[in-house]
Write a protein that binds this DNA or RNA. Structure first.
Length: 938
RNA sequence: GCCUUGGUGGCGGAAUUGGUAGACGCGCUGGAUUCAAAAUCCAGUUCUUUCGGGAGUGUGGGUUCGAUUCCCACCCAAGGUACCA
């Protein structure tokens, strides 16, 4: 009777499901603990070995917390809207709902076979109408609120309208980024409805505006930067240009300051908080207004260095700014237009990455320096980004390196405004120990003094104003996609009208075709009945839109991050049909105690969800302002992608070792399952894998085609996904769980690699053998010897500490050492084996349950109290060597002796071998580290 | 480019946070057991060496009695970079 993991694992998985062992109640005497995983997108490639890493870690912690007496909420669900299902639908015509359901079923099977302790009765799916009803509802709430700076929270649009009706907009202090002329109460009331709506859109927390997108005319769709490679679409290789389109956006910028300051009290990784801080990008400076010669327009710039205002020698505008067209002089028009066209073909990332290539064009226009009245040439340059600050900079080449490089490149004069500093070679960017010179009233001031003074004077002359700028941009919320939440909006007289909660969910309509319409409208434009009957408050099957009772519905859908911004509250009360989460549930669970997920979400999901949380908190809909007290980033398990090399313009693929620097071959990804451990490609398999390879030619090296390797994110599109199924089949879930933990530190990224699996599997077999002798179950009542108890308690201590600090890899090592020692002692004592079983149960739950039952327990091991470390088993023997000498004038003292300096010196000098080394000399200096090492300097 | 993280034997990694670098596991080598193999057990395993020792934690500097750990500069890899999730 060996360790039959298959039988054991099937048995206990069935038992847990049958007994509903992990179903958790919203009432309990015990303290609550909510452990959340970032839910997966159910990809067609199935769950890969990277997913379980975090789930195993959270499951270990969840089981540990149950042993420690907590009422643990540990749910799971699916982030099931997304692009891959839609692209699959485009290729095959398969409805994304069907694909998604299939993928979810597969995921569930895979998750179940790993023995996770999820409470599946609380499962959520973002693509289910029961769920997205509430996502749509939150959208409506955002639409129905604005951000009031006086109270520093979101307030209802109705209250804003009331104020407009009473006092106009003069005293309103709210976040609004469109220019709205002052109006009185009477004027407001006289406005037409559409005019009022237009104004209100400037305030709403979700609003329509023109946003720049990557437009691909051939595909008739908008593309992510991700989908653009070298300026052409990844799919098809068509040209992509920048285009302005009406888009829904979320006014996350209103929450910039609170998102920033809220980080302070969160127990999240410092690096991740730093990423969010940098992303929000708070900077203090000033807006400065420059008049334009021969125009009544002004250029508004944001600068963090108003102290250098006298060093301005030119200005640079982002090429895509509308203003450029208005000021460009006829003799420069041609050059400017061709430059703009050029930059339109580059993504923002390319522009930022390419700093060595300095490009720009003079517009022919001049601005007027607000303080000196000097003529300042206005340039455009792609190092200035349209969506940061105002899209325009006042260039101070002596104080900013990019401005300096630009000036040098185009031979623009550089004025030095720093005292005793040379700017002949590079800009002087140091702010400390700097004295301003050649700057009129700023002469002799330090950076700090000059900042304040410059802003004062600019404000006096109405030429500027002190400002805080945030890099954080409003989040575009429209997607020209099918497989997402429909936006609950219809259009009346061209203005957006909100549905109400009673109208929801607004179900996603069926379409024949998942591509954009021939006219370039989003896929929902293909739906035959996508119109709203305003009177009867329902979707209208009759497509005749008459704009009196039947109105067109919004065709865009929501982005992937919509549902994931609030899903963690739905788990608390997943079945509630009346509210997004019931009061009782949310008051009991409050928030997430531990959130586990990857740092790749740092500036996406983890920021958006904090924004929604704060908004819902403002509305008194949620009890806390931050939803996750503690966050741990599990490192990504990376895949090892394989590449074949195609000779340019041919269908010939070359073995990697034949590549020479002269021919630049194109690397093309191939599926890793076609490659063996020695990087040799299965060419016949490749030919069958994708039609493009069926007729290809291959250049072998010694009959072998070697592939190139690269470590990168595991993803279906990179063909480098490894499934956990085979490992479960071969070694069992307990081995997989322990192995993934043993692989390395939880937080660190590491490439997947199966070498070493057998070591962990062996450990479990040895553990099993501790309970058996000659294949019969044997656990004795004999009193264990002291050594066995010592090793047990060392292990309890180490494992408890390691679980609490999420060092699961070293935990596994401790188990191995413990079991090896007990094996060599031939220890079968119940007093040792019982606590050890509980200790192991979070890591290897199946084998622990089995042995627990064999020990005579009828209840599951799940709730057994965790063993407690007892120090008294450890100290005894260690008192024998108070001082040890390692021959290099270095001493180690045991705990009991390391008290104070004098006692230590006395002990060391009294030690016989000390005298040998001293040879009559006396120590000059003692270096004593308590409980550690002593060095003596002669 | 910018932000974040990491770089230690043939491999994954450990090091009480400034104190004997390489725990534990894989792999490899030798041995025991076996007709044989698998499995299991025991021993060895950073490199180098004239067997005294010498070198060694991405590279080059620095601080320190002492640095994988702290500081400066650089190189390499991964994640993010706003429509992948």
């Amino acid at each position: 009777m060996g360790y039959d993991f298959k039988e054991i694992e099937n048995k206990w998985q069935a038992y847990w499901a049958d007994q509903q062992t992990f179903k958790v109640s919203n009432h309990s005497e015990k303290p609550k603990f909510y452990i959340l995983d970032m839910f997966p997108y159910p990809s067609g490639a199935g769950l890969h070995v990277g997913h379980p890493l975090g789930y195993i870690a959270s499951d270990i912690y969840a089981r540990f917390k149950r042993h420690k007496g907590f009422n643990v909420l540990h749910p799971q669900g699916y982030d099931s809207f997304g692009l891959p299902a839609e692209q699959y639908a485009i290729q095959t015509g398969q409805h994304p709902a069907k694909t998604t359901q299939d993928n979810i079923s597969r995921y569930r099977t895979q998750l179940d076979q790993m023995g996770f302790s999820f409470d599946w009765s609380r499962e959520v799916r973002t693509s289910s109408p029961d769920f997205y009803k509430w996502t749509q509802w939150i959208f409506l709430l955002l639409f129905d609120h604005y951000y009031c700076k006086d109270t520093d929270k979101a307030l209802s649009i109705t209250s804003l309208i009331n104020r407009f009706e009473k006092e106009g907009n003069v005293n309103i202090n709210a976040v609004c980024d469109v220019k709205i002329e002052p109006f009185s109460a009477a004027e407001w009331l006289a406005y037409e409805d559409s005019q009022q709506q237009e104004i209100l859109l400037g305030y709403r927390l979700t609003y329509l505006s023109d946003a720049e997108v990557n437009w691909c005319a051939e595909l008739g769709t908008v593309l992510a930067n991700d989908e653009i490679i070298n300026g052409v679409s990844e799919r098809g290789g068509y040209p992509v240009t920048k285009k302005k389109m009406k888009q829904w956006s979320m006014r996350i910028s209103a929450y910039s300051e609170r998102l920033l300051s809220g980080l302070e009290h969160l127990d999240w990784p410092e690096s991740l908080k730093e990423m969010q801080r940098n992303w929000i990008g708070k900077s203090i400076g000033a807006k400065v207004f420059f008049e334009i010669e021969g125009s009544d327009k002004k250029i508004e710039v944001f600068t963090t260095r108003p102290d250098t205002i006298f060093g301005v020698t030119f200005m640079t505008l982002a090429p895509e700014l509308d203003l450029v067209q208005e000021i460009v002089q006829p003799n420069q028009k041609k050059a400017v237009d061709s430059y703009i066209k050029e930059t339109q073909q580059r993504t923002q990332r390319e522009r930022m990455a390419d700093v060595k290539n300095i490009t720009g064009v003079f517009t022919g226009a001049y601005a007027v320096h607000p303080l000196t009245g000097d003529k300042i040439p206005i340039w455009i340059g792609d190092y200035v980004l349209a969506d940061y600050g105002t899209g325009a900079v006042m260039a101070v080449p002596c104080g900013d390196q990019r401005d300096y490089d630009f000036a040098k490149h185009f031979d623009i004069p550089i004025t030095n405004i720093f005292k005793d500093v040379s700017v002949a070679e590079e800009a002087h960017t140091d702010k400390v120990n700097t004295i301003i010179a050649h700057s009129d009233f700023l002469n002799g001031l330090s950076y700090k003094e000059a900042m304040v003074r410059a802003i004062d004077v600019l404000e006096e002359k109405a030429a500027g104003v002190g400002t805080i700028n945030y890099k954080l941009r409003d989040a575009v919320f429209s997607r020209q996609r099918y497989w997402g939440e429909p936006i609950p909006i219809y259009y009346k007289n061209g203005m957006p009208q909100a549905l109400t909660l009673e109208d929801l969910p607004l179900n996603l309509p069926d379409v024949e075709n998942y591509l954009p319409t021939p006219e370039g409208a989003p896929p929902l434009g293909n739906a035959v009945n996508w119109a709203w009957n305003e009177k009867e408050r329902r979707i209208e099957a009759n497509t005749a839109i008459d704009h009196t009772t039947i109105f067109p519905l919004e065709l865009n859908t929501m982005p992937g991050w919509a549902g994931s911004s609030w899903y963690f509250y739905r788990y608390m009360d997943a079945q509630n049909p009346d509210v997004f989460v019931g009061d009782e549930a949310k008051n009991y669970w409050q928030d997430v105690d531990l959130y586990l997920g990857g740092s790749e979400h740092a500036t996406g999901h983890l920021l958006y969800s904090r924004f929604w949380q704060k908004f819902l908190f403002d509305l008194d809909l949620l009890p806390v302002e931050e939803y996750a007290k503690k966050l741990i980033n599990q490192g990504m398990i990376l895949g090892t992608s394989a590449f074949v090399y195609r000779k340019p313009g041919t269908q010939t693929y070359v073995s990697k070792d034949l590549l020479s620097p002269e021919i630049t071959c194109e690397p093309i990804r191939v599926d890793v399952s076609l490659v063996n451990a020695s990087d040799e490609l299965d060419v016949e398999g490749l030919k069958k894998w994708q039609p493009q390879f069926a007729e290809a030619e291959f250049e072998y090296s010694k009959g072998i085609l070697k592939v190139g390797r690269e470590v990168e994110k595991m993803s279906k599109s990179k063909y480098n996904v490894v499934n956990p199924d085979e490992i479960c089949e071969q070694y069992g879930a307990d081995t997989l769980r322990m192995y993934e933990m043993f692989l390395g530190p939880l937080e660190q990224a590491k490439p997947w690699n199966t070498a070493g699996m057998s070591g962990v599997h062996n450990f479990l077999r040895k553990f099993w053998k501790l309970f058996h002798q000659e294949d019969t179950f044997l656990v004795t009542d004999t009193v264990p010897d002291k050594k066995a108890l010592k090793i047990l308690h060392e292990t309890i201590k180490k494992v408890t500490e390691d679980i609490e600090s999420f060092s699961f890899n070293t935990c596994v090592s401790s188990f191995m050492i413990c079991v090896n020692e007990l094996t060599s002692m031939d220890c079968h004592s119940l007093e040792v084996l019982k606590p050890l079983t509980i200790l192991l149960s979070p890591f290897a739950p199946h084998i622990s349950e089995e042995l627990w039952q064999k020990l005579g327990h009828t209840e599951s091991i799940v709730e057994a109290p965790f063993p407690v470390f007892d120090e008294s088993f450890l100290v005894e023997e260690e008192k024998n060597y108070p001082v040890s000498f390692n021959g290099k004038m270095r001493f180690t003292l045991s705990l009991s002796l390391a008290l104070d300096k004098e006692a230590i010196q006395e002990a060391v000098l009294g030690y016989p071998r000390t005298q040998e080394y001293l040879e009559g000399k006396s120590p000059k200096k003692w270096i004593i580290v308590p409980n550690k090492i002593i060095n003596i300097v002669f």
